[in-house]
């Protein structure tokens, strides 16, 4: 827990520093017509950095001796996060419809251990339904890849 608290505080403080840098570029003063562009980001970030220091101090002084995440619990979390990240990468490469079919098929087989019939029904049915709802019906384009190009979309 302590390490996680310290790391999070450090990351947030670093983000705060970035904000301060850009805010200084924009001007942090209070002109005749009110605050300049950088005024609010600057003070927000300064406060943020201050809070992060306080949190770090707290974390060092008093932290429950429980780990942030147990090794046993980390597995399932990564089992969701990993495929989800893979899904996003695939979406970028080959479009959302094909990517979601592959993702769902993979996940349902690997984690859910569903029957192949169920897998095929959902993994094909969902993207097809989505395609009709969004692409045809609502005219909202989703990211597309070679398959859709081939189909003329």
């Amino acid at each position: 827990m302590r390490a996680a608290n310290l790391i999070t505080a450090a990351i947030l403080a670093a983000a705060g520093v970035l904000v301060v840098v850009d805010a200084v570029r924009l001007g942090t003063g209070w002109g005749t017509d009110g605050p300049q562009s950088g005024f609010f980001p600057f003070w927000l970030a300064v406060l943020l950095i201050g809070c992060c220091l306080a949190i770090a101090a707290q974390a060092v002084r008093l932290t429950l001796p429980v780990p942030f995440v147990t090794r046993k619990a980390l597995g399932p979390v990564l089992a969701v996060l990993g495929p989800a990240a893979g899904f996003v990468v695939l979406t970028q490469a080959i479009g959302l419809y094909v990517a979601s079919a592959l993702y769902m098929g993979f996940y349902m087989r690997w984690i859910g251990r569903h029957s192949w019939a169920a897998i095929v029904a959902v993994a094909i049915g969902f993207p097809v339904a989505t395609f009709f709802v969004f692409e045809k019906w609502f005219l909202v384009p989703m990211p597309k890849g070679p398959l859709e190009t081939w189909l003329g979309y």
Partner: peptide, 24 residues
């Protein structure tokens, strides 16, 4: 079942996030 619901939710979330600004 959870093994089916999870990818469905993730995919629906992705569609939702994309459709806000049509932005990857």
């Amino acid at each position: 079942p959870f093994g089916m619901l999870t990818p469905l939710i993730v995919a629906v979330c992705a569609i939702g996030a994309y459709s806000v600004h049509s932005s990857m």
